[in-house]
Computed example of a mutant assay.
Amino acid sequence: MPVLTWEFSAQDLARTRFARSPLGEVVTSVEVLKDPGRHAVHLPWVRQAARRLAGVDWELLSQLVRLPTVYVPDFLTPVPTASSPTIEQALAELAATDPAVVRRDLARIKGELPPLVAELTRDPESGLVRLAAEVRAYWDAAIAPHWAGIERLAEGEILRRARQMSTGGPAALFADLHPLVTWERDTLRIGHRLIDAHHRLDGERGLVLVPTVFAWPGVFSQQNPPWQPGLVYPPRGVATLWETAGSAVPEGLARVIGRTRARLLAELDTPASTTELVERTGLSAPNVSHHLAALRDAGLLARHRTGRTVLYLRTDAAELLLRSVPAGD
């Protein structure tokens, strides 16, 4: 398999950051809709989205995201410059794209251009207006109903990665990012379908890590100088967004700390809020809050405030405790 490598300096590591991308979720979700068999974990979303998109015009967006996905125009999938842009900010930037940049990116598409993409090349100003309107309509129908959960999952992923790096350095940050991603000394290696190349980051840009739900099961690189390069990967726990059944309760652990607390620990495979845990478990909010407080007092949970939401996550002690439970339990 071809391998893309990025060589880091200490300055590059210092500039490495996380960001979320509404446009990234849109583009990768289009790929999911077009090839649901390859993205089985998202099938519950596919069924809902197909119904919601009935009668919605998103043909230009569809023609820009072609399968097999060899290249999606960079202006449609920019590496975020802010850590958590809103869809409104992302669409404003998209609509304001320089026409010369649009033509440059579309020229990289191999083969004959689909009709609406060819029209976008001829008249980028009008085409961008149409494209922004289509993305907005697609977003409202297919992504917006799930955006709060997607944001919380990404925020939990960022929090968990930050804790890993704080205790184990860059090696811990990248250790289980994705099966195709490995870190050795100062070099990040990404297994790639098409690209076999080695790049040395220049010490001024670093890397942007972009957890993207609909990227599952893949991992994608983005490189468009002079902007920061990006690495798009699925956050941990993507399936929990669409699951209706709760996590399995470790029975051995339940006999020691109680079934409810064991279940809450199992549910927190990815960080979650009290509200999410109430929805998943069917327990009352006061009951969940009581048990979360007890688990936190025992050193098994930590909490982190992000905006108005408080996320709970398992501590290393809890991870060790759950790993010690027999696999068949």
Rank of each mutant, 00 (worst) to 15 (best):
V41M: 08
L23K: 11
P99M: 03
V102Q: 04
V79S: 04
A118T: 01
L61I: 10
S84R: 14
W45C: 06
A54K: 14
V102Y: 05
V79P: 05
S62E: 15
V41W: 04
L94Q: 09
G37L: 12
A133K: 06
I87N: 10
L131D: 05
L76D: 07
K34V: 00
A19Q: 09
A96F: 06
A92D: 15
D57A: 13
A132C: 02
D74V: 10
V56N: 06
A96E: 13
Y71S: 05
A132D: 05
L131V: 00
W147K: 03
A141L: 08
R108Q: 14
E134M: 02
T86Y: 09
G111Q: 11
D123L: 05
L33A: 11
G55R: 12
A82E: 15
E134F: 07
S29L: 03
W45D: 05
F18G: 03
L53N: 13
W45V: 06
A141R: 12
P44F: 10
V102M: 03
D98G: 00
D98S: 08
R47L: 13
A82W: 09
D98M: 04
V135W: 03
L53A: 09
L106F: 03
A49N: 09
E59T: 14
R38S: 15
A19H: 05
L64P: 00
W58D: 06
D140I: 01
A96Y: 06
T121F: 01
W45S: 06
R38K: 11
V70A: 12
Q89T: 14
T28I: 00
P99C: 04
L94W: 10
T28K: 12
R136V: 01
V56C: 05
L67R: 15
V79C: 13
L94C: 08
L23I: 07
T28D: 05
R66P: 02
P99D: 05
L61R: 08
A54G: 08
S62Y: 10
A40K: 12
L113G: 00
P80C: 12
Y71E: 01
L116F: 00
T81V: 14
E25M: 02
S29T: 04
V129D: 07
S126L: 08
L128N: 03
A144H: 01
A40R: 15
V102T: 07
A95E: 15
W45Y: 02
E125H: 11
R47C: 00
E93W: 07
A90I: 14
A95M: 09
V56R: 13
